[in-house]
Each structure stands twice: as structure tokens, then as C-alpha cells.
Design a protein around this nucleic acid. Structure first.
Lengths: 194, 194
DNA sequence: CTCTTGTTCCTAGCAGCGCTAGAAAAAGGA
DNA sequence: TCCTTTTTCTAGCGCTGCTAGGAACAAGAG
């Protein structure tokens, strides 16, 4: 009994270790550097140990992505609840989102560009994901007119999100001039809040 | 002299063959299927021949991406010059853009998500890229107020582009519910055109 | 303390990847 | 026909994600 729980605890501990190592490696050297061999060396176990915890490398990336979503949700929440007017709050949350993406590009990629088979806009989506989206939604809510429905809110939130995501990704790989960034963001926020 | 030109012609021909094969393979089976071995087999030459034309696989993808930009520019131009009001034209061009991305996902990825080191928002950007962006810009131009500058136009065009790009990519990998797509697009267009 | 059983873990290897050195083949000129 | 230059291929390097099968270990029984 006690032995069993200790083992499970140690296993869970090691699983967190794997995720942490993968994340740190990705953030410091990019996802290309996160090979199963390198990761195994990092956690001081052999390769097959990774596969006893995760189905494959994609599953490890997905786990990192979920952690990233939780972090993002925290940062968005901080920006949202910092008490300013609705429009100012929108700008602050947007800045928090874009800042996150720029500060942690590898993490951001794992969350929103790399992984494909991670349940998302469904009931089975990981709580951290729903929470992050919820922060965006509650940021947008005060800007809605009375005659607009909850579905309108969701849609506008997605447009807000999509706009930021597009700007972030196109900026990062050189499609946009970086010097126009502030102007773009201001324009996006201005137009989306009527 | 004549022999020389014939050789150059044949080489150029084979280069187009490589690009076409890469594109077709990517569009039918995805970029993962486009390996240098597979591509060599497809064009009925050995692997090193590929490297006598392109520096590496990335360069082949870049060539495909440029071709894709030319195609996109053509489709955008058709939508833009189909004579409707400015707002309706904006919607048509947006639909053309999104339709292109959905119809040719592999091509779209090569153009806007995969390749990183392709000169873009600079003077050295391939003409096809500048042309495609130009189509977007000229679509947006009629919606500008008189007091707005050319830089504002560029910025708004980028916001327009970024919004569509974000929606396209987040939709494709399951971050968005597909059933809200039309509502999202309508919202984006409505807000961006005042 | 020793032996057996069951679990955990590692060594070694597979098939495939992008890419390249050096040999073989082909083509052109004398 | 021979030689030179250019083109093309064979073979292989170091790497990837992933896994089968045996070694090492820990836990309980006698």
C-alpha cells in the first residue's frame, strides 16, 4: 500500500521532471534541440523511460503545451483584473498575450502552431486551455452591445484571439515589419472595440 | 553556344520539374511525405541532383512557396477586380484568401508558417509576394479615411491579413469551432471596415 | 539470509531522415 | 579514337523517433 503510493508518487515526480526538462530545453535552444536522446540525457534516464510515460515525442510536446496554457491564463488574468476601463483592459490583455508569445516563442509554438491532435474547442479540452480562452472571453465581454448574444461574444473573442495570433506568427517569421507592430496592435484593438 | 543554351534550358526545365513534383507531393500527401529520396524517385533522378539545383530541402520548399504566392496573387486579383462595392470586395477577397488556405493547406503552410528565412517585408522580397500583399493593400485602400496615411494603409492591411491568417491557422488545427467560421469572418470584416 | 517472482530499466538496433564525398558514366572537342 | 570536362550515381555519415529483448533491481516467501 504505502510502497505502491510511494512508487506512484515517484513516477509522477519523474513525469513532471520530463515535462520541465523538455520545456526548458525548448525555451533555451528551440524544439529542434529537444530530441528523445537529449531529453533522456537531461533527466538522467534512458530513452525508453520517456516512452513509459508518454506515447511519443508529440505527447511530451502536448504536455508542455498544456503547462504553457496554464501560464498564459495566469498572465492574462493578471492583466485583466488590474482594474482599468474595458478598452484599456483589452489593450493590457492583448499586450500580455503578445508579450507571452514573444517572450516564450517555443512554448507558444507548442501551444498554437505545432500540435494538431490536442482536443481544443470541445468539452474534453484540458482545463488550462478553457481557462486561457475564458480570460480572453471575459476581457471582451464588457465591450459587447446588449443586443449581442453569447455566441457573438465567443465569435468576437475568437476574432480577437485570431487577430493577435496572426500578427504574432506573421511578425515572428519576418512577414511583417517589426517597426509597425504598435500601430498594428492599436489598429486591431481600436477596430474590434467599435 | 547553342549547346550551352540547350543545357541551360534543360536544367531550368528540370528545376521546374522538381518544384512541381514537390508541390504535388506536398499537396496530395503533406510535407512529411516530401523527403529528398521520395522526391528524387519522383523526378527519376538521384538525390544529389536535387542539391545541384537547391541548397537544401528548405530551398525547395521556399521555391514552392513563391509559386504559391503567385497563385494566391492571381486568385486575390480576380476577387478584387470583380467589381462590387468596396466592402463587398473586401469580403470577396477575404473569402478568396481563406478559400485558398483551405483548398491548399500544404502550399499555404509553406508560404506562411513553415519557411522562416525567406525575405519578405523588404525590398528583396520575391515579386510574387509583393504582388500578393499589393492585392490585399489595394483591397483595403478604398476603405481608408482621407486623414489616414499610406503607413496607416499598410498597417491596416497587415491587420486584415493577420486576422485572416490567425483565423485560418487556428481553425485548421482545431483551436476554433468550424461552425462559427462564417460568423467570425463577418465580424472581422465588419469591424475592420469601420 | 537466500531464493523466487515480478517489475523496472537499459543496451542495442531498426528504418528512415537530410545531406555529401568520391567513383562512375556520359558528353564534347581534338 | 582518345582525352578532358561535365554530369550523375552509389554508398555512406550522423542524426532522428521509436522498440524488442535481456539485464538489473526490488519485494515478498521460506
Amino acid at each position: 500500500m504505502s510502497i505502491q503510493t510511494r512508487r506512484e508518487r515517484e513516477r509522477a515526480e519523474r513525469e513532471r521532471l520530463i515535462i520541465r526538462a523538455a520545456r526548458e530545453l525548448a525555451e533555451s535552444e528551440g524544439w529542434d534541440a529537444v530530441t528523445t536522446r537529449r531529453l533522456a540525457q537531461e533527466i538522467e534516464y534512458s530513452q525508453p523511460v520517456l516512452y513509459s510515460h508518454f506515447k511519443g515525442k508529440d505527447a511530451i510536446m502536448a504536455a508542455v503545451a498544456i503547462e504553457g496554457c496554464a501560464d498564459l491564463a495566469v498572465e492574462l488574468r493578471a492583466a485583466r483584473t488590474a482594474a482599468a476601463g474595458p478598452r484599456r483592459t483589452l489593450a493590457d490583455v492583448a499586450a500580455a498575450y503578445v508579450g507571452f508569445a514573444e517572450r516564450r516563442p517555443a512554448l507558444y509554438d507548442a501551444m498554437f502552431t505545432h500540435i494538431v491532435d490536442l482536443p481544443f474547442a470541445t468539452a474534453e479540452a484540458p482545463p488550462a486551455l478553457q481557462e486561457a480562452f475564458g480570460e480572453l472571453r471575459e476581457t471582451v465581454r464588457p465591450l459587447m452591445r446588449d443586443d449581442e448574444t453569447e455566441a457573438d461574444l465567443e465569435a468576437l473573442t475568437e476574432v480577437f484571439w485570431g487577430g493577435m495570433h496572426g500578427i504574432v506568427t506573421l511578425t515572428r517569421n519576418g512577414r511583417f515589419r517589426r517597426e509597425h507592430h504598435d500601430r498594428r496592435m492599436a489598429l486591431l484593438l481600436d477596430r474590434l472595440s467599435h
